Computed example of a mutant assay.
Amino acid sequence: MSSGIRTPVTVLGLGLMGSAIAKTFLAAGHPTTVWNRTAAKADALVEIGAKDAASVTEAVGAAPLIVVSLLDDDAVAKVLSAAGPALRGKVLVNLTSSTPEQSRARAEWADVHGVSYVDGAVMAVPQGLGTPDALLLYSGSESGYRTAEPALKALSEKGTYLGADHGRAAAFDAALVSVFWLSLFGVSMGIALAEAEGIRGSELVPFTPALIGLMPGLMAQTAAQVEADHYPADDTTISSAYEAFTTLRTIFAHHGIDTGVLDASGDVFRRALDSGYGADGLGRLVPVLGGGR
């Protein structure tokens, strides 16, 4: 799979992400074989040059690089089991969302079956694949990753190998995506409050870059405090932040907006305060969340 050769690729699973993966490989000139349990999902890809395999075994036999994008780990287990010995000697890159434990268990299965296994996390929406903004994270077999890397560059030039621990990409994914999911609730709550005050959500948009721009610095500062186990209140204390937080909750409650997300966060603040950390910086919330001191 050298950089001078367009590596044949097989894509197993043609949901939104799997279809986007196949399209991106095709656009980059890679001979691409596809398979999906519902065969009709392959039709649009066949029209643009993909080969539709009649079975998982046929699909796996068509290429040295197998990329999997299925619903969950159970689906991956069933499909790989159906492939059987045809997988031996292949490089398998699993881009299905999974837990770190599932990724490590899948790697053990792959080792028994003679497969070079790479676990991956797609930090992009399907339409973002192949663009400069796409980011994919990989961990597991380094030799497998290096072999597949030239082809994987079609999906993301910023693809990053994180190490031999097969669960590492899934762990990075979970940690980073947690920021996204809680931000989604923040966006939803912010617009709900704006609407309750007679403000259109679109009126908030010009002011959001200033807030979003604070996030990289906040993450860097928090990570540094946790790694040093030292929590100076350089910007604010937990006590003062909690006072501002309770005011915010009061505003939401006044409008009858669901405060469940805020209440859960308030419980973390109160645990920190009850433990005597009111004068510490906000980084102290990390070990409180983790059940530590």
Rank of each mutant, 00 (worst) to 15 (best):
R6D: 10
G266K: 03
I66L: 14
K158N: 14
E195T: 08
L262Y: 09
L214K: 09
A134G: 12
I191K: 00
R249M: 14
T250R: 15
Q225L: 07
L65S: 10
Y145N: 08
S239M: 03
P232E: 06
R284M: 03
A53W: 05
F252W: 08
H230Y: 09
A241L: 11
P150I: 11
L80T: 12
Y145L: 03
N94Q: 05
R270Y: 03
L152R: 04
A174G: 12
G130W: 08
G190L: 05
L135V: 14
D280T: 03
L214P: 00
G266T: 05
T38F: 07
H30P: 02
S97E: 03
P31N: 09
L193N: 03
T236N: 11
L16T: 13
S55Y: 07
G260Q: 10
A154M: 04
S239E: 13
S275I: 01
P31H: 03
S188Q: 14
G84P: 06
S81V: 06
L218I: 15
I212E: 04
H255L: 01
S97N: 14
L289K: 11
M17K: 09
T247H: 15
E227V: 01
E203F: 03
D111S: 12
V177Q: 11
G283V: 05
T99C: 10
A210I: 02
R293F: 01
R146P: 00
A279Y: 07
L14F: 11
L87A: 05
G61T: 02
P100N: 00
W181G: 02
D165L: 11
R146D: 12
D133Y: 07
W109F: 09
A253W: 00
V68H: 07
I251P: 00
V79T: 15
V177C: 07
G49D: 00
S141L: 10
A42T: 15
F25S: 01
A170Q: 01
E149Q: 13
L211A: 13
D267L: 11
A20R: 08
R168D: 08
E195S: 10
W109H: 10
E58V: 13
M17L: 12
T7W: 07
V9I: 15
P31Q: 07
A105G: 07
D74G: 14
A171E: 12
D235A: 15
V34M: 08
I48C: 11
A107S: 12
A105W: 03
V226G: 02
K153L: 13
T38L: 09
D173A: 04
T208F: 08
G89C: 07
S97M: 06
D235G: 02
R284K: 15
A134F: 13
T237K: 09
R200C: 00
K51F: 06
R88V: 09
S141F: 13
S98V: 03
L92R: 08
E227S: 11
A148N: 00
L152W: 05
A44G: 07
L26E: 02
A124S: 11
G186V: 06
K51V: 13
D52Y: 01
F25Q: 08
V261S: 11
V205C: 02
T259F: 02
E157K: 13
V67R: 02
E195Q: 12
